[in-house]
Simulated assay, not measured.
Amino acid sequence: MARSDAVNRELSDVLNELWKLDDNRLKPGKDYIISLQGKAGYVAKGSQARDMARQPLFSYVNEEKLRSIKSYSSFISLLDNYETSTGVTETVTKEELDENDRFLDAILETKVMQRAHSYLVSKAQSPPDLKKFKAQLYDIWFRLYHRDRSGGADSCGFEHVFVGETKFGKEITGFHNWIQFYLQEKLKNVDYKGYKAQDKDKPDENDHVLNLQFSWKTLVKPVGSCFIGVSPEFEVALFTIVFLMSKEKVTNTTVQVDEYLLELVVFRHGFSIGTSYPKLLSSNMHM
């Protein structure tokens, strides 16, 4: 599963199964409303971005669902567990370990993760035993490692992908999750600058994948990308499958999921995820 512009059919098939099983995915226009506004421009390294979106990206999210659905509420409890800056050694408390545990338990109860598990077992990439699979997920997403060699263990896959990090106080790395984006935007820590797309591929406000530009605190991410409205278990399942099905240090694979043609990117950091994100290539395609 190294780089290929051809659509990976087998992977697309299993990801479409996960898509259909994702009962906890929020519905655009009903459970959340986004406002795309203007198209973001090019940002030179170290310069400020021109704001092409006066309003926030999210104008509404059904927070009752974020509180009442176990995989969302347990996911949100993890977002304040990390030091943003790389090079700052992470201190993990007993309470935070318990929160990691509760999150993995919550997603393992979902049909999405159960199907991902059965697929990975069929490919001899995961153990059939659920406790051992949970331990495997823990290593992939929560085991701490050195991202900045100058300090102690300062990062993990979950922190990088879902929470976001800053590098040398100069750039945003990771931060590919819509729930974190919404919550940080609500706190006025995130300023959405506009969508990123080719003119012929202007996104739609009902799209579940978005390439975008934003600032976080004082730093700008010139191009970021994330799923919108999907459940935490869907993202964990999808990127875990791509990670385990490839032994490459960097995997880029093209898939067709629902109406979206995506490039899925996964960087390996030993037995853990270094980063992972979707890039929207085009939407409204027919399978």
Results as ranks from 00 to 15, higher is better:
residue 72 Y to D: 05
residue 38 G to F: 11
residue 249 K to T: 11
residue 239 F to K: 14
residue 124 A to D: 15
residue 75 F to L: 07
residue 153 A to H: 10
residue 111 K to P: 15
residue 68 S to I: 01
residue 254 T to Y: 11
residue 191 D to N: 09
residue 207 D to N: 13
residue 77 S to H: 05
residue 232 P to E: 13
residue 258 D to V: 10
residue 80 D to Q: 11
residue 184 Q to A: 05
residue 113 M to D: 02
residue 214 F to R: 02
residue 240 T to P: 07
residue 126 S to R: 03
residue 265 V to Q: 06
residue 53 A to E: 07
residue 159 E to F: 02
residue 157 G to K: 02
residue 208 H to K: 02
residue 6 A to E: 15
residue 267 F to H: 14
residue 210 L to C: 07
residue 18 L to M: 06
residue 163 V to G: 01
residue 252 N to F: 14
residue 69 I to R: 03
residue 165 E to M: 06
residue 215 S to Y: 03
residue 235 E to W: 08
residue 239 F to C: 07
residue 110 T to C: 02
residue 264 L to C: 08
residue 122 S to A: 12
residue 89 T to A: 14
residue 102 R to G: 05
residue 196 K to Y: 14
residue 88 V to R: 13
residue 82 Y to M: 01
residue 106 A to P: 12
residue 259 E to I: 05
residue 42 Y to A: 04
residue 271 F to Y: 14
residue 209 V to A: 05
residue 38 G to E: 08
residue 252 N to L: 14
residue 78 L to Y: 02
residue 205 E to L: 08
residue 277 Y to S: 13
residue 189 N to A: 09
residue 91 T to N: 13
residue 126 S to C: 10
residue 176 H to R: 04
residue 74 S to N: 13
residue 73 S to C: 11
residue 43 V to K: 04
residue 233 E to A: 03
residue 105 D to W: 04
residue 137 L to P: 04
residue 202 K to L: 13
residue 82 Y to A: 00
residue 260 Y to I: 05
residue 49 A to L: 11
residue 160 H to R: 09
residue 252 N to P: 06
residue 203 P to L: 06
residue 110 T to G: 03
residue 180 Q to I: 05
residue 121 V to F: 09
residue 228 I to R: 00
residue 89 T to D: 09
residue 9 R to K: 15
residue 151 G to F: 06
residue 223 V to L: 09
residue 253 T to I: 15
